[in-house]
Design a protein around this nucleic acid. Sequence first.
DNA 1: ATAATAAAAGATATTTTTATCTTTTATTAT
DNA 2: ATAATAAAAGATAAAAATATCTTTTATTAT
Lengths: 145, 145
Amino acid sequence: MGIFSKTCEYAMRSVFFIAHRTSDGKKVGIKEISLGIDSPEHFLAKILQSLSKQDIVKSAKGPNGGFYMDEANLKRPLADVVKAIDGRKIFTGCGLGLSYCSEINPCPLHNDFKIIREKITKMLEETSIENFNENLNLGITSLKK
Amino acid sequence: MGIFSKTCEYAMRSVFFIAHRTSDGKKVGIKEISLGIDSPEHFLAKILQSLSKQDIVKSAKGPNGGFYMDEANLKRPLADVVKAIDGRKIFTGCGLGLSYCSEINPCPLHNDFKIIREKITKMLEETSIENFNENLNLGITSLKK
DNA sequence: ATAATAAAAGATATTTTTATCTTTTATTAT
DNA sequence: ATAATAAAAGATAAAAATATCTTTTATTAT
């Protein structure tokens, strides 16, 4: 297990992929996405259904249909994707899993962990999907094998 | 899901608890530990068996038996507990779950994520169980509800 | 030696996550 | 209108994580 669930990893990869592939205004189908990000097709379908409902991505049925993103979607922070799939635990949860843990009643890891949580939050909240996508479009970063 | 698996959370909590409770040279039993850290008893037993095999904690069977830690155990970094249970993924893994991701072939999150991984690694490697335990002994931090 | 204690080990069960397969619905082009 | 397309939705399955219960082994005190 990494920082994010596997489901969330697929979600982020697919969002980057969709953003990358539809900058020309076209749409991209699930088969192509799952191939492009190396994920199981039907499992990804579920994930994208969820992301679509939560307005992280847009979708259209029928011929020439597929997934795409509008300007508002692209401007959303990556944090929204993470929250949509994994919830808020990574932003607020205690490192030891203690629900009562807080500033007044800190667990042994609390202070160190707080700094890490803040870094993660900052990284995910302060950068939009569009931002992350920039380097992808420039070929500096990659989703491929 | 947080940063660590639930199993790993129990492991860390139990290690802190054992360190805290056996500073007087005594041992502490599994029932008391599971009560003290609010974990399922038999599940924790499995975890402690594993930690014991990996020499993170010591154990003794029979009357007056239980779990304890020696000086060497206490001096180990918390990272050893995490590695023993969750493996090395959190220290080295890609945020998007891409196995090929590296400095030469970075994923979109790579550079931001690297910084976070380094912070986590630093926090877990550079502080011993004993260190974390200090504040616990002073009553500054807590494992209790 | 025997009984009591406590961890180790083994077996099984439950829950959650991840994955697959099938049917339905909406949309488009003919 | 009809057929083709592609996502949505529903049903089921497999794998992994978490949890529980029982039996065995080692140790201690009597």
